[in-house]
Amino acid sequence: MDEIIVGKVYVLDDHIDTDQIIPAAHLVYSLSDPQEAQKYGQFALSGVPPEKAGLPGGKVPFVPPGETRSPFSVIIAGENFGCGSSREHAPFALQKAGVRVVIAASYARIFYRNAVDGGFLIPLESKEKIVPYFKTGDSVEVRIKENRLYRRADGAEFELKSPGDVLPIIQAGGLFAYARRSGLIKS
């Protein structure tokens, strides 16, 4: 796991559910065929209503039309990110689009588990609601060990919550890697 992640942010509202992250009609593509799995990147966050897509102004496509990678590798969002279905396709789609870390005020349980156990991306929680302080396109630096987020333009600093006893799984890069490392399963 990289300790420091630098990237541009894409800002979202509260309650981004899994149908917005990856609409159900797209769940049919293979997750294991590398070529076909690109489709998940292409349609990541395609269910977000346009006026909410990339706050504060909205109408910022997360992935440029026809492409499979997003220019935004950090997502900043409000409460209850990833609510809805249990589809692991959701953190997978974000990962395929190039997201490395999500910083939300809070998460739905299954999305959080999936992100961590699958090692798709790093879900972190902000101490306060930070959505109003950011606009889509801001450059940021996330320091995982220090639980801090910096806005590069002015150096403004925001505190994150520690992932607590889930950190070892995040650091290992997922549940299987963790289980091997700790001897839970034989490699």
């Binding site: 999936n114 156990d117 699958g118 997922g174 549940l175 299987f176 289980a179 839970l184």
Partner: peptide, 16 residues
Amino acid sequence: TGVGNTDAAFILGTGK
């Protein structure tokens, strides 16, 4: 309770 595919794959192999 509901889980994702990775958790389910882990259960499939370990029951845990």
